[in-house]
Write a protein that binds this DNA or RNA. Structure first.
Length: 441
RNA sequence: CGGGGCGUGGCGCAGUCUGGCUAGCGCGCAUGUUUUGGGUACAUGAGGCCCCCGGUUCGAAUCCGGGCGCCCCGACCA
């Protein structure tokens, strides 16, 4: 993509309405524009990030056998009246009437709908287990939206729902999802710690919040440093091997990790000083086992081998996709702008042409652009060097390829790593390899 | 929902208290010159329902009434 003809409006001034870094940077880097309180339009760069995150989430869900569907944003109130949540949900739920005066709502979540859908289709225990998910916009009419997409009213979320024959199988599914989440977040390039969450009236230890570490996070977190060393992606765990999953879960939960509400001083004190990590975090996902709550209230059952009704045990598993964009920026930026993890950056690299009227510069840039025209952003604008650098830093491209008349005559360019600021001069032909083989230490 | 604040070219603001020249300033935008590796300098220019409706007045961005929108603090939340 060429910057000169793109819809990537960066702004120099700090927008007055934005209070926190991620919100300011998202507006300044041209990722989003607000259209109403807590509601945002996603511009090309922002949409690319959203899609990159979604794609990783999708791959890791598919990897554990979850199947993608797409449920609508608007739901009939009927199902919610059946489950009893229509009245319970309160003013957070956006209620709408159609022309026939039929009550509709903009879905804040999809347990009712998926349970009903499941019930229409699955009739026998032989068809279990099932894990279904979708990535869809939701709406919760927050009392006070704030912090940009971190606490918007409309938000993009991956929500998965599982159906198992009994508790023991449901637990296995829960473990699978835990593994999938750990892998997902690692691929997203962020440090996320699962922490025991409140399970409400259901009890047990089967709900975890996934917290991304960021200094401006909403809650304080305490965890064992050993957690940081885990490499989930390179752990060869077969997601069909129940024993391996159970072991993994044991291993994960043996590490201490808690938010300030659940912080246990006595357990904390047993951890060696050197391994104690304290910080702040933002919740970006939650997994939850809730048993037969909906299948029973909505009378959705399958027939068991003995011919009797069985109410499947369910779990639900959310990842706040749009919230992650803000949360990742909170945990990865500096005073100049965003620092995107490679895996989700809107563009892999930005080619900065400092000599748009210089033949050598132009031809080198064109050549570099061909390495990956879709994912290399080419700053071909006739602008000052300073503003190009400032924009590239602001937008947070992992790589900047700087092409100036000085070195272009020697067929050399400068490559800058956004994250570290390290720069290296390379022959034009070396750039593609250098970037694709680069490893962060 | 309680408390506070704001609404004036695309963005950030002044002007409002104390009504009155042609509604200003910085940034951005356009054109030209200049500059050319970290937001250059100068010149010229375009761009305004002063949030909306009603009222007071010879006259309203400014005063009064009503409405809408947005932001901040709190309680709440993925």
């Amino acid at each position: 993509m060429r910057l000169s003809s793109s819809f990537l409006p960066t702004i120099k001034e700090i927008p007055s309405e934005a209070q926190i870094a991620s919100h300011r940077l998202m507006l300044r880097a041209g990722l989003i524009r607000q259209t109403a309180s807590g509601i945002y339009a996603w511009l090309p760069a922002g949409l690319r990030v959203l899609r990159n995150i979604s794609e990783i989430v999708r791959q890791e869900q598919n990897a554990i056998g979850a199947q993608e569907i797409l449920m609508p944003t608007l739901q009939s109130s009927d199902l919610w009246k059946k489950s009893g949540r229509y009245d319970a949900y309160g003013p957070e739920m956006l209620r709408i009437q159609d022309r026939h005066k039929h009550d509709l709502l903009y879905g804040p979540t999809n347990e009712e709908m998926i349970t009903d859908l499941f019930g229409q289709i699955v009739k026998s225990y032989k068809e279990l287990p099932q894990i279904l998910y979708h990535i869809q916009w939701k709406f919760r009419d927050e009392i006070r939206p704030r912090f940009g997409v971190m606490r918007g009213r409309e938000f993009l979320m991956k929500d998965a729902y599982s159906f198992d024959i009994d508790y023991d199988k449901a637990v296995i599914t829960y473990y699978k999802m835990m593994l999938s989440y750990l892998r997902t977040f690692q691929r997203l390039g962020v440090k996320v710690i699962p922490m025991l969450a409140d399970t409400g009236p259901i009890g047990g230890d089967l709900s975890h919040e996934f917290i991304i570490l960021a200094p401006t996070g909403e809650s304080g977190v305490f965890f064992d440093a050993d957690f940081e060393e885990q490499d989930w992606l390179n752990m060869q765990i077969d997601s069909e091997d129940e024993k391996a999953l159970a072991n993994l879960f044991k291993q994960i939960t043996q590490f201490y990790a808690a938010t300030d509400e659940k912080h246990d001083k006595s357990r904390w004190d047993q951890i060696p000083q050197a391994r104690r990590r304290e910080g702040r975090g933002i919740e970006v996902g939650q997994i939850f086992y809730f048993g037969t709550k909906y299948t029973q209230s909505m009378d959705i059952a399958v027939i068991g081998s003995d011919g009797n009704k069985i109410y499947p045990h369910m779990g639900s598993y959310g990842i706040g996709v749009s919230r992650l964009v803000g949360a990742i920026i909170e945990s990865s930026h500096d005073e100049n702008g965003i620092i995107w993890p490679d895996s989700i950056a809107p563009f892999k690299a930005c080619i900065i042409n400092l000599g748009v009227k210089d033949e050598a510069c132009v031809s080198i840039c064109e050549k570099l652009h061909q390495i990956d025209p879709e994912n290399f952003l080419y700053d071909d604008r006739d602008e000052r060097a300073g503003s190009k650098f400032a924009d590239a830093d602001l937008m947070g491209h992992p790589w900047q390829i700087i092409v100036g008349p000085r070195s272009a005559s020697k067929n050399k360019v400068e490559v800058k790593r956004r994250k570290t600021g390290e720069r290296i001069e390379l022959d034009v032909e070396e750039v593609a390899n250098y970037i694709s083989n680069y490893n962060d230490r």
